[in-house]
C-alpha cells in the first residue's frame, strides 16, 4: 500500500545546537492509526512539527499524499489536521467562530452543516456560542480537535491527545479516533500512555533520542517481542532454588512460595514441559500455575533502556 506520509532521512538541529532528530525515516500508510511512542524529549513533537510546517525542515525530505511539504506546501498542508499537545486556543472568541476560522484558513468555503456535524460529534454543539475561555480543559481539547477536523483532513496528527485527561474522556477520545479511522482518515498519535497505543493503534513506532528504534504491527510486536512469564506456586516454601533447576534461570519469590520462569513463546521449545518434569523430579509439589504475557509497556521500557 502506498504511504500517505513519507519521511526520508530527516535531521533536525535546533538553533541551540540540540539535535532533536538524527536521521528519521518513516512511512505512514493510508488509513492506519500509527502510535508514535517515546519518552519525553525523544523527538515526537519535533517530527510532527516538521511534517506540519511549524518547524523548518533541515535535512531530508517529507511528502504528504505525494506532495513535498516544502515545494508543494499548500497541497501537503491541505491534507493535514493538527491537534497540538498544548491546549492553545483563542480565549475570547466563540467556539463557532474559532472553528470556522480554521476552515477559512484552509481555503474552504463556508459549510455550516459540516461544522455543525463536527461540533455535535464532539459534544460541543451546546457550547458553540460560548467563549472558549469559559470551557473546561477537556472541552478546550475537543475544540482543538474540532478545529483540526473543520477542513476534513485526510491525515490527522494528535499530539498527546489524552495527556491530563480523565479516564472517561480518554475512552471517548479513542471512540472518536476509531470513528475517524472508519471514515478513512489516517491518524498519527503520539503518546506515552502505552495503554493508549495498545487500545487503538494498528502500528507502533518507537522513537528514542531522535531515532526511530522500531516500527511494527502492534499485534505482531506484542507477539514477537512478547515475553511470557510462568509463575509456579509451591505447596511448601523453599529456601533456595534447587541445584537441579539452576539452568532455567528461575526467580524465587521472597516468601519462597513461588517460582517465576520467563520464556519466549515464539521459540521452538519454550522449556515449560521439561521444567514441569524437572520440578516434579526434584520433589516439589505444585499448587497452581499462572502465565502472563508481557505488555507493550514492558517492551517499550526494554527498548528505551537499551543503550544506543
Amino acid at each position: 500500500m502506498a504511504a500517505i506520509v513519507s519521511v526520508r532521512d530527516v535531521r533536525k538541529v535546533y538553533e541551540s545546537g540540540f539535535e532533536a532528530l538524527k536521521g528519521v525515516s518513516l512511512d505512514i500508510e493510508r488509513g492506519e492509526i500509527l502510535a508514535l511512542l517515546g519518552p519525553n524529549g525523544a523527538g515526537k513533537t519535533t517530527l510532527i512539527s516538521l511534517i506540519c510546517g511549524i518547524a523548518r525542515l533541515g535535512e531530508g525530505a517529507i511528502t504528504v499524499g505525494g506532495h513535498d511539504i516544502v515545494t508543494a506546501y499548500r497541497e501537503a498542508r491541505s491534507m493535514i489536521g493538527l491537534v497540538p499537545q498544548e491546549v492553545n486556543v483563542e480565549p475570547f472568541e466563540t467556539v463557532w467562530n474559532t472553528v470556522t476560522f480554521t476552515r477559512g484558513l484552509f481555503g474552504l468555503p463556508r459549510d455550516d452543516a459540516h461544522v455543525e456535524r463536527v461540533l455535535r460529534d464532539l459534544s460541543l454543539w451546546d457550547k458553540r456560542d460560548a467563549a472558549t475561555r469559559e470551557l473546561s480543559g477537556g472541552m478546550k481539547r475537543r475544540v482543538l480537535i474540532a478545529k483540526a477536523l473543520a477542513h476534513d483532513p485526510k491525515v490527522l496528527f494528535l499530539d498527546e491527545p489524552t495527556a491530563g485527561v480523565d479516564v472517561e474522556l480518554r475512552k471517548g477520545m479513542w471512540q472518536i479516533v476509531r470513528q475517524l479511522k472508519a471514515a478513512g482518515t489516517t491518524i498519527i498519535l503520539t503518546t506515552h500512555y502505552i495503554e493508549e497505543a495498545e487500545a487503538i493503534a494498528d502500528r507502533v513506532a518507537v522513537i528514542n533520542e531522535g531515532r526511530i528504534v522500531l516500527v511494527e504491527d502492534r499485534d505482531r510486536l506484542i507477539h514477537q517481542m512478547g515475553r511470557k512469564e510462568l509463575t509456579v506456586e509451591l505447596k511448601a516454601p523453599l529456601a533456595a532454588v534447587p541445584e537441579a533447576l539452576s539452568s532455567y534461570g528461575l526467580a524465587l519469590s521472597e516468601d519462597g512460595r513461588s517460582l517465576r520462569y520467563a520464556y519466549d513463546r515464539a521459540a521452538e521449545r519454550t522449556g515449560i514441559v521439561s521444567l514441569l518434569r524437572d520440578l516434579s523430579d526434584a520433589g516439589l509439589a505444585l499448587r497452581d500455575l499462572r502465565t502472563r504475557e508481557s505488555s507493550l509497556e514492558d517492551i517499550f521500557v526494554d527498548l528505551v533502556r537499551k543503550p544506543a
Binding site: 506546501y73 499548500r74 497541497e75 493538527l82 497540538p84 492553545n88 484558513l105 484552509f106 481555503g107
Partner: peptide, 17 residues
C-alpha cells in the same frame, strides 16, 4: 497575541503563504 498564547501553530500549519 497568537504567538503569546500559542495559536500561531495554526497559521504556520495552514496552507497559507
Amino acid at each position: 497575541f497568537p504567538k503569546f498564547i500559542g495559536t500561531i501553530y495554526e497559521l504556520l500549519s495552514a496552507p497559507v503563504s
